[in-house]
């Protein structure tokens, strides 16, 4: 395995949980809901995936458990913000607190156990292609899932009637409701999808990235995922690019250090955040990009008038 190949694989490993969580949140936001609880759902996914894999012995059951945990947690958010129209920002923050506490309790008995790693699934023939084969077709299930989800969501949002309906709700829930679309039901489904994706991201952390359970192991990746959605101006393929860029910047910083570049490491650690801000600014400078894509009723509560 060559140097660049290896670095690329590291970048992709770092980016995959971000892609998974962000693609879910993208759908949620496209439907007009802002769920800031990604970090909480992710950590719940991580602990339940780990627990599931330990108890059953199968990492695939672990992944399933992570998805269920993330999904269940997101429904809690959905009940508060959609049914009870509570403030979405505050509810999302509360979800994160709850998730960090609850995951710590669930995970207490799993500390210090080596995890079960999700196996690499080589795709026959394709993985033998020089360079690219190993990088793209010699990965684990969750990597393929992340790519599949991005393509699937892009297709769903822009090529299907259901996707059109979802975007319509995000842009103007009033009109969508007047046209007979069930705003609340679609939003529940979107929130659930977002939760399941965050759960998958958590599963990636505890089954692939570092197959173990430790408290707070998501370490802020849920927030980065949120930033990526805006960064991508709510477009799935840009989101993929953004996540890999972010991964590249943070891995690149470590390489620069190992090569002995004399920059204080704190500044190297700042890079991904500064890069995110710069790109956010560049993207938002082009008003067409944001105004066209930003769901107009993002974060606004909806109460159907009958």
């Amino acid at each position: 395995m060559g140097f660049y190949e290896a670095v690329l694989i590291s970048v992709m490993t770092a980016a995959t949980p971000l892609v998974l969580a962000a693609i879910g949140e993208l759908v949620v936001e496209r439907s007009g809901v802002l769920n800031l609880g990604v970090e909480g759902m992710m950590i719940m996914g991580a602990v339940c995936a780990f627990a599931g894999a330990q108890i059953s012995g199968s990492p695939f059951i672990g992944v399933l458990c992570g998805m269920i945990a993330g999904g269940a947690f997101s429904l809690l958010f959905g009940f508060l913000t959609l049914t009870l129209v509570a403030n979405q920002v505050a509810t999302g923050l509360a979800l994160t607190i709850l998730g960090l506490g609850l995951s710590g309790m669930i995970g207490e008995s799993f500390i210090g156990l080596p995890g079960v790693r999700l196996p690499v699934l080589d795709i026959p023939f394709l993985s033998d292609i020089p360079v690219i084969g190993r990088i793209v077709f010699g990965q684990d299930l969750l990597f393929y899932a992340s790519i599949g989800l991005v393509i699937g969501v892009a297709w769903f949002l822009f090529r299907t009637r259901a996707g059109l309906r979802l975007r319509a709700i995000g842009d103007n829930h009033g009109s969508a409701h007047a046209l007979g679309v069930s705003v609340i039901r679609v939003r529940y489904l979107a929130v659930l999808f977002g939760g399941v994706c965050s759960g998958l991201a958590g599963a990636h952390l505890s089954l692939v990235y570092t197959p173990q359970w430790v408290e707070n192991m998501s370490a802020g990746r849920g927030w980065i995922a949120l930033a990526l959605v805006v960064f991508a101006s709510w477009r799935p393929l840009r989101l993929l690019a953004g996540a890999y860029l972010f991964g590249a910047v943070s891995i690149g910083g470590l390489h620069a250090q190992a090569l002995g570049v004399g920059i204080p490491s704190q500044f190297v650690s700042m890079l991904p955040y500064l890069a995110t801000i710069v790109v956010l600014v560049l993207i938002s400078m082009d008003r067409r990009l944001t105004l066209i894509n930003r769901p107009a009723s993002l974060g606004q509560p909806f109460v159907p008038e009958r």
Partner: peptide, 15 residues
């Protein structure tokens, strides 16, 4: 931060 430590480990090995 297991994730970041793992990233650093990968970078060092790659070098």
């Amino acid at each position: 931060d297991p994730g970041r430590e793992a990233d650093a480990a990968r970078a060092l090995i790659d070098q």
